[in-house]
Design a protein around this nucleic acid. Sequence first.
DNA 1: GACCAGGCACATC
DNA 2: GATGTGCATGGT
Length: 227
Amino acid sequence: MPTATTRLLSDMFDAMLVQLGPSGWWPANSPFEVIVGAILTQNTNWSNVEKAIANLRRHDLLDPERLRQARPEIVEACIRPSGFFRQKAKKIQNFLAFLHQEHATGMMDLAHLGTAELRERLLEIKGIGPETADSILLYALDRPVFVVDAYTARICNRHGLVPEDVAYDELQDLFVSHLPERVEQYNEYHALLVRVGKEWCRKREPRCAGCPLQPFLPRHSPPARTP
DNA sequence: GACCAGGCACATC
DNA sequence: GATGTGCATGGT
């Protein structure tokens, strides 16, 4: 017997998918490109990340070993459009050092590690926090890990499911504990939430008209009828 | 010109 | 443990 929350989360997913269609995430040509994108998109608009990725591709640097050995100034210049470029260049190198230590020539070489262990290892890398680690696990490595972010928190808060300042793990647990553990749905659910967040649930001015989730917004109790 | 974007680490209290 | 701040570019 599904709980009300289980049913709600499932219905919200269906409504978003019906109205918006499949998201096709993560837009990238390889698992490695997903990882670079996951770091570059931290607190940054995706369109800026696309510019940075294009620059890296132009320099033939979308390869772990070539990127690891590239001069820092070149890498920084490539990723400059995505902002925080010095920090992010360092973060990428931190990840590449980890990959190198693992004797991995590509992301799929990490397949022997269990999901929980791999998540812990990723979180040890300076510059990779919970959202980035989970994005890597789900979108680059097809692990059943639900990704949440600021949009997820905002939307779930508007729907009365969590407090505004909900912790990452708690928000993640909301979905994990109410949805079947399926990579495909985890993938699509996060993508749909981001798309809805961008379009209808912006920080200052939520525009609920036309939002696929509008029918699920908590109803205010109707005004008492005067007899 | 302010605000925001698919965060994170670090300092300080 | 909670809160504040630096990081930096580009679009709205």
